[in-house]
Nucleic acid binder design. Sequence first.
DNA 1: TCCTGAGGTC
Length: 814
Amino acid sequence: MRDFVILGSSIITPPPNSHPPPSSSSSSSSTPQYRHPIIKPYKPSSLPKLNPLSPLNNSSTLLQTPLKLKEFDTLEIDSEVNAEKLANAVLVGIKDKNVRRVIESLNKVEGLGGVSLSAHLDAFVVANECRQLVTSGHIEEAVELMEVLSRFRLSIAELVQPNDIIKRCVLSHKPTLAARYASLLPQAHTSICRIISEFGKKRDLVSALKAYDASKKNLKSPNNMYVYRAIVDACGLCGDFMKSRYIYEDLLNQKITPNIYVFNSLMNVNAHDFSYSINLLQKMQKLGLKPDMTSYNILLKACCVAGRVDLAQDMYKELKHLESVGQLKLDVFTYSTIIKVFADAKLWQMALKIKRDMLSAGVSLNTVAWSSLINACAHAGLVDQAIQLFEEMLLAGCEPNTQCFNTILNACVEGYQYDRAFRFFHSWKGNKMSASFDESNNNNSEQGDMHNVTTVPTGTTSSHILSFTERFPFAPTTSTYNILLKACGTNYYHAKAVINEMRTVGLSPNQISWTILVDICGRSENVDGAVEILRTMIDAGIKPDVVAYTSAIKVCVESKNFPQALTLYEEMKSYGTLPNLATYNTLLRARSNYGSLHEVQQCLAIYQDMRKAGYKPNDYYLEELIEEWCEGVIQDSGEYECEFSYSNKPEIERPKSLLLETIAAHLLKRVAGILAIDIQGLTKVEARLVILGVLRMIKENYAFGYSVNDDILIIIGATKADESPSEDILEVQEAIIKLLWNELGLEALPAKTRFAPNDTPKLQNPKRSNLTLKALPADNALPTTTGFHTRRPAVLQRLKVTKNSLHRWLQRKA
DNA sequence: TCCTGAGGTC
C-alpha cells in the first residue's frame, strides 16, 4: 500500500541542465562593493572652491561669490553656467552641513530643464561628503541627498560604501531607508535581497517585509524572482510560514508565475506541512516548471519532518529507480536526508545501508552525511558504533566540524556515558581553547574550584580518536554546552557551573539551556528551583517558550504541586505563549495524582481549552476525569451539592462549573416541549460526559423541586435516508445505550424519525477538531434548518429516555 | 542538509 503516488514517472522530469542562480541568501559576494580606494577622508580645507574636473574654466566670479542657497529659489536653469552655479551651490551647501536646505532647494528647481549635474560636480567629492554624513549618523539625509542628486543625473550611491550603509540601516532597523538606498545602486536587486535576508537572519520579519514593500515601490523592475525568493526565505527564518503563503497567493493573484527557485523556497519554508508542499509541487508542474533534485530533496525533508518513514522510503525507492533509468542523479543532500529519516526513527541499520548505497553510487560522504550517520547510532544509544564511524570518517579524510563533535558528545550522553562526554570535551578543548579563555578563568577567582567544571580530573581519555582530533579546530557552541548540561545528569550544581563556564567563554545560555536546567531541577522535585529558572530566563531577556513552560509544568506535576502547575499554565497564556499538545498532555496527566473535585473541574476546564485550541480530544485522559466527577451521578454519593452554589432559580443561575454551564447552553434545548440533548459530533466519551452532566443537573434541579415532565431525546447523529448510520454514530449509540440501561437503569428506546430536508436539524460538521463545547448565544443553541446540503431526507438517530424511568431514577436513593 | 530542551495513555 503506497500513498505516496506523486512520484509517478509521468511527473518526473530530467533534471535541468542549467545550474541554479546564486541563492539570495548567499549573494553577498556579488553585492556592489565600494571600489574606489583612493578617496581620502574629506577635509574642508582641501575642498576646491570649484570642481577641478569641471570642463568650465571661466568661473572666477563664482569663486569670489559662491551662490547662496537661498538663491536657488530664483535661479533659472537655462544654461551650462547656471548648472554650474547650481553645482557649486550644492557643494557649498553640503560643506556648510546644510544638507536639508540643499535637498529642499534642489527639489524646488527640479524639472526646470532636465539639468545634469554630473558634468559639474565631482562625484567622488560629493560621495565623500555623503560618507561623512553617514558616519556622523545622518543616514536619512545622506540617502535623500543621493536620491535627489540621482534625479539630477549624478549617481554617487555606489561610491558611499554600500556595505557600510546597508549594515548601518540593518543595525538601526531602518528597512525602508535601506531599500531606498539599495534602489539607487546599479545592482539594486542583489542589494535588496541582501537587506531582506539580513533582517531575516535577525528574525525581524516586519523589517524584512518593509524592505520588500519598499523595493516594490522603488525598483524599476519590481517583479524579481530573487527578491521573492529572499522574502520567502526570510519568512522561513522567522518561522512565519503563513506569511510565505500569503506572498505566494499575492504573486498568483497578480498573474506572476514564480520560478522553480521561488517554488523550492516555498516548499522548504512549508516543509513541516507535507500536503501543502506536495500541492506546491503539483502547482509548479501545472505551470510547466520541472521540479529539480532540490525540489525532491525538500519533499524528502518534508517526509522527515513529518516522521513519515514509510513515505520517505517510498520516495527514496522511486528516486533510486528514476536514477537507474537516467532521469535524475541523487546528490549528497538526498542521501543525508534519508539517513536522517532513519536516524530519527532509530533505524540505524537502515541508515548504514544508505551509506553503502552512496558508495556504490559514487557519491562521497561529506561532513553532514557522516554526522547524520553518527547521529543514527547516537539515537540508538550505540556509543562505540558512533565513535567507530567517527574514526572512519577521519580516516576517509573528512574533517569534523563542531556540529560533528557535538554529535559524538551527544552519543555519549544518549548512551548515559556522561564522564566519557566530559573527557572528550576536555581533551578537545584542551587542544584548541584560546589563551584568553585560560586568562579569563584565572582572573575570575569567584569561580573558585568550579572554574574548570567540565574537567573530569580522574580517568583517562576514553579513546584513541583523541589523537586524530588534535588536528581539527573545535569551537564549542551553545549546543555543545547544552549537551554537557544533559551530561550533568541530576547534579544541579554541576549544571550551574557549566552555565557559568559557558558565559566565561563568551556564550550565552539559550532557551534550550534553561529548559535542561529546569529538567534537572525536576529530577530532584525542586519546584521552586524550576520556577526560579523561568524568572532568571525572563530577567536575562529570554522569553520562556512553550517547551520551557511545559518542562516547568512537568516538574510541578511530577512533584504533585498542581496549583503551581496551573499558575504556570495561566502565566504562559498571559504572556502570549500558546500551550500545545505536549502542554495539555502534561497538565492532564496530573489528574491521576489528585482527587479533589475542585481540581478535577480545573482539569475539565483545561480539557475544554484543549478542544478550543483545536487539539484532538484525548479520551483516555477524559475518561479518568469523568470517573472523578460526572460518574458521581451513578454513585449518587450525595456529596456533590456542596460543590455548587445555587440560587433559588436554578434554571437561570447555572452551576459554577464552566463545563456544566457550557453543556447547558449548548446542548440542552426544548424541541416541541421535549427536552433534547444534542451529542452530534462528539466522541463516545464526550457524549458520556455530556449526558452524565445533564442528568446531574436534572438531579440537582429535582432537589430544588423542579421535576421532569417529558421524555428526554438524545440526538446522536444524522444519516441520509438511503444509507446506514456511520460507524461513529453506531459506536456512540451503543455506548450511550449501555450507559443508560446498564449503569443508570434508565429506559432508552430508539426514536427514529424521518425528516423532510427543511425539517432536518443542522448536520454538525463531523470534523472534530473544529468542535467546541463553548457556549453559544441562546438562539444559536437550537438546531437550525440551514447547513444541510442534500435534497434527500435525512434520518436522525435518536434515543428517547422515558419520563417514567427518569422519575424512578430521580426518586432512587443511594 | 547534520547537533541540543517538553508530552507520547490504551
